[in-house]
Design a protein around this nucleic acid. Structure first.
Length: 875
RNA sequence: GGGCGAUUAGCUCAGUUGGUUCAGAGCACUUGGUUUACACCCAAGGGGUCGGGGGUUCGACUCCCUCAUCGCCCA
């Protein structure tokens, strides 16, 4: 068969992905095997694939593919998330560009547009993941707003309501005036800004005196209902019991006292606007203050403001300043740095606003979820995120789960005409409940109005590990019983609260069990300069272009090479390039092997037999190391292990040793054994580089139709013979020594050399002589009992190796080398002796440690003896 | 203001619960190499008082205290 000299990933990757799909290898059904389950963090339907997804899904695919090779029933459930705010914003924007306003549409009409939009864009990311090689069970693809998932969300809402955990309340919420909805605390991003601190004076009612307050938001004075001072503040004792007039609107409001006021800040005198500041709201509650909401939902001033009605809040701030100056109330303006909350979704400044919302009480839900992580029932990788989690879980506020949007799950609350309500999964059930509640059998649907709002998107994604198996509506179905709890979750640490914590809560609340055993937190992908990747900076490469350039395997390797768990990773194109280069290396190794002519006549040479024996042991050792890395979720370490094994041990050592002379055939036995070794290597490589491993594996031997490396087996780790491994390491060193002598003396590889060895006590064993002869191109090995005069030399352990150079030897150079080596060894010995002569070390340290130090002493002493003799001989 | 985390080679980071030559890997760099798979390569090499200081210990990159710098989260 003709093997192309260059590996072509694009062609190969498409071919095998198609094959895997045809063979239905990705699909899982419950059976007798141990399940291994991952649910994908569902990407937003609005999104396109970015580097974060690449990292995240590469890791998931590695875990799933390895589980499959380990013989587990692996199931990776894909899907997407409806992303209420983000999607609604996109749809509104699209409609606007077509001249359609959301207000012009009915809810149903709008939803039709939203569904069209979702149908068109929603699957893009999943399609892109196929290019990456993701082995998801596509038959199970779920969507947070499909029928089963929607039923699940609604049912859970009703259940939690019936348990008394869902309640309706008026609260200060984070209002997004652009999206016209409440958002959760987690969706508010605080940014430090250069702003102004305005000093405004209020006239004391009935007097000609004033009191000055400081504020960053002068436009909110229109909603002031008090001025507050600290009860301990001597400066303001005279104000107690008095009233002041709010500037411009001339409203009379009381002066109140509250410990909350910081005497050091500003003037020590605080204006109170209960409708527009969370702290003011709480003070207002304590003092029974009036609440005047001076803003409309879109951030413009309302009728209640009396002036500047209809003007946007920022414009109002600009306009009110000259008005206050004119009225004589503006005292001064200072520059001031403060933090301002922005909406994560729309990037507009969040407005604290009082409104009626649905809340989920967190206290009961949080307890088991916190315990689970504390006790490592759910394990976080890396562990450091436990601290963050504990801190957050200990300071939980109730979760505002309603959103003033249309795109999402409409809240299953139905209001009667008298304002009371029933909560039910469907309209029919609601009607029945309403009839029962009112005792009026004649009620119809026309008498009921469903709550306009939808639920927060996270209120559906927190059920994801359960709802993808329909475990909410049918809590005892086969699938949920088999696949749940899932095995591992891989996600970014930025959504630990949004998503991970809430899934754990839902897991215990719904099924009294954790949703996943392990959580692997990935870092954030940043650019080379450490900046977050973003569209506006244009610093994010297009993943699909990267795949086309370096191959999916290359990109996967590149993502992992720099990605310790939890730490941010700085992405640079040299990384996938390195991955691509590695593909080429593997390909060329394979080409070498497949290019050999095989002879049935030839006996297996000793050196080949030894090298194969050694490599099999070495590979076993390396796989054991990889298994350990996997167990501890050190995925990039596992990759690095197989990377160096292939590049160094397999290609540079095994293949070089067994390689026949130019145009000479190789013996059958060696050839087959090398193919077997490569077969194993490919199988442990497969999770990381699924495509090239499949391509080579298929070309390696005749395969039956329907066979694939992805459903083969992860190699077993056998007994490892440490003597063999250390013996071979000694040969490697000896060969390096010979190469050095050649290099230093300009002795070309093609000229064979005679090697003399003086064995020490525990030195070179001689078992690998044939390997040494081949790799060093030696004409022979002679054992000697004394140093060889006038020869170049080097030492491995306590053996000395000599290469007679006749007159060619540079005595000065050789002496210099020996002196240096002697000096180093003596220094080493003295450090060992220092330990051994320390009485407290000998008595205090474990026996094994002391024994090792003694062995070091013996080795060093032997080496020093040899070196000294040689120096004498040379002189 | 509160909390968490980090600080190790030019860069990005490991260092597995204090003990072999433990100061490492990859990349980058330097030198040499058209050996008959691979220059997307091979071989060899340089480079760090493990942020500073103190402590515990026979022994500290590792544990404790403190300071400095940076980052993240929360208020």
């Amino acid at each position: 068969m003709e093997i192309p000299s260059k590996y072509n990933p694009v062609e190969v990757e498409d071919k095998w992905y198609k094959y895997w799909l045809e063979q239905n290898y990705f699909h899982s059904e419950p059976d007798d095997r141990e399940p291994y389950t991952i649910v994908i963090p569902p990407p937003n339907v609005t999104g396109v694939l970015h580097m974060g997804h690449m990292l995240n899904n590469t890791i998931q695919d590695i875990l799933v593919r390895r589980a499959r090779l380990l013989g587990k029933n692996a199931c990776w459930v894909p899907g997407t998330d409806h992303a209420s705010i983000a999607t609604e914003a996109k749809v509104v924007a699209k409609l606007k560009s077509e001249g359609i306003g959301k207000k012009d549409l009915t809810r149903d009409e709008f939803l039709k547009h939203a569904w069209d939009w979702t149908d068109k864009h929603g699957g893009i990311i999943l399609e892109q993941l196929k290019k990456l090689g993701a082995s998801c069970d596509w038959e199970r693809t779920s969507f947070t707003m499909d029928e089963i998932r929607s039923q699940s969300v609604v049912k859970v809402f009703v259940d939690l309501y019936n348990k008394g955990l869902v309640y309706r309340g008026v609260r200060m919420v984070n209002w997004d005036p652009a999206a016209k909805t409440a958002v959760s605390d987690e969706e508010v991003i605080h940014k430090e800004e250069q702003s102004k601190l305005y000093y405004v004076r209020y006239q004391i009612e009935g007097e000609d005196n004033y009191v000055t307050i400081a504020t960053t938001r002068p436009e909110t004075i229109l909603g002031d209902t008090a001025v507050c001072v600290n009860p301990n503040d001597e400066r303001f004792q005279h104000l107690k019991g008095k009233r002041v007039l709010v500037p411009l609107v001339e409203r009379s409001v009381p002066v109140i006292v509250d410990e909350y006021v910081d005497m050091e800040f500003g003037t020590g005198c605080l204006k109170i606007t209960p409708a527009h500041d969370i702290n003011d709201y709480e003070i207002g509650m304590r003092h029974n203050l009036e609440t005047i909401d001076t803003f409309n939902d879109d951030g413009t001033l309302s009728e209640k403001a009396q002036i500047l009605v209809g003007v946007d809040r920022f414009e109002a701030r600009k306009q009110i300043v000259p008005m206050l100056e004119k009225s004589g109330n503006m005292v001064k303006v200072e520059d001031y740095k403060n933090k301002v909350g922005y909406s994560e979704r729309t990037d507009v400044v969040i407005e604290p606003k009082l409104s009626a919302q649905w809340f989920l009480s967190m206290e009961k839900l949080a307890k088991p979820a916190l315990d689970a992580v504390e006790s490592d029932e759910v394990e976080f990788h890396p562990k450091k995120f436990k601290n963050l989690y504990r801190h957050w879980m200990g300071n939980l506020k109730d979760w505002c789960i309603s959103r003033q949007l249309w795109w999402g799950h409409q809240i299953p609350v139905y209001y009667l005409e008298d304002g009371s309500f029933v909560v039910a999964e469907t309209a029919e059930k609601a009607l029945a409940a309403a009839k029962e509640k009112t005792g009026n059998p004649n009620l119809t649907m026309d008498n009921l109005t469903q709550d306009e709002d939808v639920l927060d998107t996270w209120a559906s994604s927190w059920l994801w590990p359960i709802s993808v198996f329909d475990g909410v509506a049918k809590p005892d179905n086969n699938e949920i019983n088999y696949y749940y709890p899932t095995s591992d979750l891989v996600t970014g640490h930025d959504i630990i609260f949004f998503w991970v914590a809430r899934m754990i809560m839902a897991g215990y609340s719904e099924r009294d069990q954790y949703p996943f055993k392990n959580v692997y937190f990935t870092g954030m992908v940043r650019d080379k300069q450490g900046r977050k990747m973003s569209k506006s900076l244009g610093n994010s490469p297009d993943p699909i272009e990267l795949i086309e350039k370096y191959g999916a395997d290359g990109v996967r390797v590149g993502m992992l090479l720099c990605s310790p768990a939890g730490g941010d990773l700085l992405f640079d194109e040299s990384l996938p390039e390195q991955g691509r280069n590695f593909s080429a290396k593997i390909w060329n190794s394979f080409r070498l092997v497949r290019g050999w002519e095989v002879s049935d006549e030839l006996e297996q040479p000793e050196h080949s037999k030894l090298a194969i024996e050694w490599f099999n042991q070495k590979l076993s050792e390396q796989i054991a190391i990889m298994n350990d890395h996997f167990d501890k979720f050190r995925i990039s370490d596992a990759l690095m292990t197989i990377y160096t094994t292939i590049r160094d041990e397999f290609s540079s050592w095994l293949l070089e040793v067994v390689k026949p002379a130019y145009l000479q055939p190789i013996d059958r036995k060696t050839y087959e054994e090398v193919l077997d070794a490569l077969d194993k290597v490919l199988r442990v490589l497969h999770p990381f580089m699924p495509f090239i491993s499949e391509e080579i594996w298929q070309l390696l031997r005749e395969r039956q139709a329907g066979e694939s490396i992805m459903v083969s087996q992860w190699p077993e780790v056998g007994e490892v013979n440490q003597n063999l491994l250390t013996g071979f390491e000694a040969v490697k060193e000896a060969i390096a020594g010979i190469r050095n002598v050649r290099k230093n003396n300009n002795l070309p590889m093609k000229d064979s050399l005679e090697l003399k060895i003086q064995k020490g006590d525990k030195g070179y064993g001689g078992q690998f002589d044939s390997v040494l002869v081949k790799m060093g191109n030696l004409s022979g090995i002679e054992l000697v009992t004394e140093e060889v005069k006038g020869a170049a030399s080097f030492r491995v352990f306590s053996s000395s190796f000599f290469i007679d150079l006749g007159d060619l030897i540079d005595v000065e150079e050789e002496l210099k080398k020996l002196e240096e080596e002697l000096k180093y060894t003596q220094g080493f010995l003295s450090s060992v002796m220092k330990k051994l002569s320390n009485e407290r070390f000998v008595s205090g340290a474990p026996e094994a440690v002391v024994a090792k130090e003694k062995a070091k002493q013996a080795d060093a002493e032997a080496k020093i003896k040899v070196l000294k003799e040689q120096i004498v001989n040379l002189k």
